[in-house]
Design a protein around this nucleic acid. Structure first.
Lengths: 338, 338
DNA sequence: TTGAAAGCGCTAACAT
DNA sequence: ATGTTAGCGCTTTCAA
């Protein structure tokens, strides 16, 4: 099953190498021969075997992404899949395939080692959720083309790409300052939540830039859940003077925050403004619609893809970068009605 | 770069075929030789080239999934990625790789044809969102191992797998009947929404089974949005007598429904019960927590994987099946408090 | 501009 | 139990 290059060569009355050259668009082939061979190719319904081609060329034309794909990941972490979709799109445009490979922190390194040793892939994309010191060491030692999706929570020489959450925080703060809010509060995740920490850092900086200050009594930390958002907001609303705007580190907290504000009978945005990050999953259905700093995670995936393609060509490239793909979406929750 | 089988053979003082047999666990090799060769393999740090192996064996050990991966798909359709994750897990357990390939209805067929012709993959998984007549014809004609994820909306001989939404509807209705509700209503999607239609069909059947009847005035159709769920509920609550339970075809409608019920000042579940399907994305955060018939889409992905592995071995297998992986999760919204 | 031939690294009949 | 050898289907020097 499957016509081979030999049969094409014979039928066209040329050598296999000539056919190969036609397939690969080699310059040395006369237009005449080229046409004739292509003719035969079409007649015989010939398609070169992908694996034979790759094998002969010593390339796989594929990238493997290692990520935690455990139960409910698609629901709990859709961002990751959006990144992957962006990655896939970019790779596909250059004729590379993207393979998904589920892993855990404890297994990822072994898998990566296997893929590298067996030359199963041209490059590796590794979601930060399965990143370990060991794996970082492997990547650095082998100089294998790779990119870590997200900033590893330890120092190393691996290549990574991440969203600039500090910048997003600045954007959020600048917006509120511009709208005339004075007493801005921040409800964030726990200490280990680096995304939240960076957003907080950005908010603080953005406020300072506008001549404002983020007061300690307006900063609360908790779990990234509806319940904790509510709890933190209640605490926040027991402070004097009341804040006139709240930035929530994420959607879950925002939802709880809005609920608590409503329960207290306060009006958004006239008595207190609310905004958050990410246009997902709740910001669009909350009443009133929330202003958000939206994060283009898909764009980050595309960038990652471009870097990988680059590193496949130039294995010594090193990249460690924050991409800033935030986008302010102003909605009712922060725009005072006169 | 990369130790080859030849070098191992030489170093071990055996032939390459012996090494190959050791690698593949061929029975005919003496334990002694086997140990010695393995020893050398370890010493030389030899790993067989995956592409050479696959090429020689004429297999790719990979499955490609074709799906719509357009912007925001991960947010708007996380179910699809959960299916894919289930698929990947099952394939990986059998040492198959899963490649993601973004497509559109207009391009999927061409891509599939290319993959098949160039023998790029051992099997194809095709999400129903990119399914077309043309593609179906291709799959049937070539007998290429495949499975469609979801029921195609036209007749054909392709293999497919889908959730049994009728069954889910029955489960939902049976639960309400058992809890003693009498006047059950159904808020569903538009006509073209087959999932909603199947759930409705199941609800109707489940009620009949319990000696109840789904009245026409209690059936409403609209968009699967928060707003339309609210709108439909308002209409519903203008009927006499009022229903005592509502089944919403999905989470979006359910959220709107609960909001409208609250706005009307009615108590859930004592005045009216509410339940829906899928434990995502809102059912867990709505107050009160909603009873749902949860759908194990990941399980469906695993099943799809098993079928594919089967079809790779036996290309003539045909499968068209509904998997019933629903799971009733009873929560406050349907259990009356005395 | 074309062709002959030597790989690419491994598998699998077949022979021993 | 082990080795010989002919592929697998294509690419790529090198020579013509």
């Amino acid at each position: 099953m499957g016509v081979t290059i030999k049969e094409v060569a014979k039928a066209a009355g040329v050598s296999v190498s000539t056919v190969s050259k036609v397939i690969n668009g080699h310059y040395s082939i006369s237009e005449e021969t080229c046409d004739r061979v292509n003719q035969v190719i079409r007649e015989l319904n010939y398609y070169p075997s992908a694996s034979a081609q790759n094998f002969a060329k010593g390339a796989t034309r594929s990238v493997i992404v290692l990520a935690d794909l455990g139960p409910n990941t698609a629901f709990s972490n859709p961002h990751m899949f959006e990144i992957i979709a962006g990655l896939e799109e970019t790779l596909r445009a250059r004729n590379y395939r993207l393979s998904l490979c589920g892993a855990e922190p404890s297994t990822a390194c072994e898998m990566a080692e296997d893929f590298i040793s067996r030359r199963s892939t041209d490059a590796l994309a590794i979601h930060v959720s399965v990143m370990t010191h060991q794996l970082a060491a492997l990547l650095v030692r082998t100089h294998f083309p790779h990119i870590v999706l997200g900033l590893p929570n330890f120092d190393s020489q691996v290549c990574w790409i991440d969203i600039n959450n500090v910048y997003s925080g600045i954007v959020a703060a600048a917006h509120l300052a511009e709208e005339g809010y004075q007493r801005v509060a921040f409800l964030g995740g726990r200490d280990h939540d680096r995304i939240s920490a960076h957003r907080l850092e950005g908010v603080r900086q953005g406020l300072e830039d506008a001549g404002l200050h983020l007061e300690d009594q307006y900063i609360w930390q908790g779990d990234s859940t509806y319940m904790d958002g509510q709890r933190m907001t209640r605490k926040l609303l027991s402070r004097e003077p009341l804040p006139d705007a709240v930035i929530c580190a994420n959607n879950y907290i925002a939802l709880g925050c809005v609920t608590a504000i409503r329960e207290r009978g306060m009006k958004i945005p006239n008595e207190i403004a609310v905004m958050t990050f990410d246009d997902y999953p709740f910001s669009q259905i909350i009443e009133p619609p929330l202003t958000v700093v939206d994060i283009d995670v898909r764009g980050m995936g595309s960038q990652a893809g471009k870097f990988l393609l680059d590193m496949i060509r130039h294995p010594n490239t090193q990249i460690q970068t924050y991409v800033t793909t935030s986008n302010l979406m102003v909605r009712e929750s922060t725009v005072r009605i006169q």
